[in-house]
Simulated scan of single mutants.
Amino acid sequence: MEDNEILRRLELLRIEHRDLDAAIEALSGGNAPDQLQIARLKKRKLRLRDEIAMLEDRLIPDIIA
């Protein structure tokens, strides 16, 4: 994957991560929150965070000590 492709993918993942934040907040604020749905969204959010971290690591060049 080229650096520009990685940057584009990172942008999309960060947008989805923010959208999940909003969705979790909206579901949590109701009278009877759907705990199963909230748990699924949180799990998806964690997977996104892991993928974001992996892609960010690919952008940083290895430093030889």
Rank of each mutant, 00 (worst) to 15 (best):
R49Y: 11
E25W: 08
E5P: 03
D19A: 09
K43E: 14
L59Y: 03
Q35P: 01
R47D: 14
D34E: 07
R58S: 12
L55F: 08
I15R: 11
P33C: 00
G30V: 11
I15G: 06
K45I: 03
D19V: 06
G29W: 04
L12F: 05
I63A: 11
I52Y: 04
R14G: 05
E51G: 04
N31W: 07
R47C: 07
E5M: 12
R18K: 14
R44P: 04
G29K: 06
A26E: 09
R8V: 06
A26I: 05
R14M: 06
D3E: 15
R14Q: 13
N4S: 14
A53V: 08
A53C: 04
M54D: 14
E25F: 09
L59S: 03
R8S: 10
E2A: 09
R8F: 09
L20D: 01
E25P: 02
E16K: 09
R47H: 10
I6N: 07
E2R: 11
I6C: 02
I64H: 15
D50M: 07
L10R: 00
K43P: 01
I63W: 05
D3H: 12
M54T: 13
I52D: 01
P61L: 06
R58I: 06
R8Q: 12
L27E: 13
M54Q: 13
R40Q: 11
Q37H: 05
L12W: 02
P61V: 01
R49H: 13
R58Y: 04
L10A: 04
P61G: 00
R8L: 14
H17Q: 07
A26Y: 04
R40D: 09
N31M: 11
L20I: 05
I52M: 08
I52A: 03
G30I: 15
A65N: 13
A53P: 00
P61T: 04
I6S: 05
E25Q: 13
R9N: 07
L12I: 06
D3S: 12
L13N: 00
D50N: 12
L48W: 03
N31G: 09
D62H: 13
D62Q: 12
A39K: 10
K45D: 01
I6D: 01
E5G: 06
A23G: 01
E56F: 02
I60C: 06
R44V: 03
R58D: 10
R49V: 07
M54E: 15
I24R: 08
M54G: 08
D57M: 10
N4F: 11
A22V: 11
D3V: 08
L13H: 00
I52F: 00
S28T: 07
L55Y: 00
D21L: 03
R14P: 03
L41G: 03
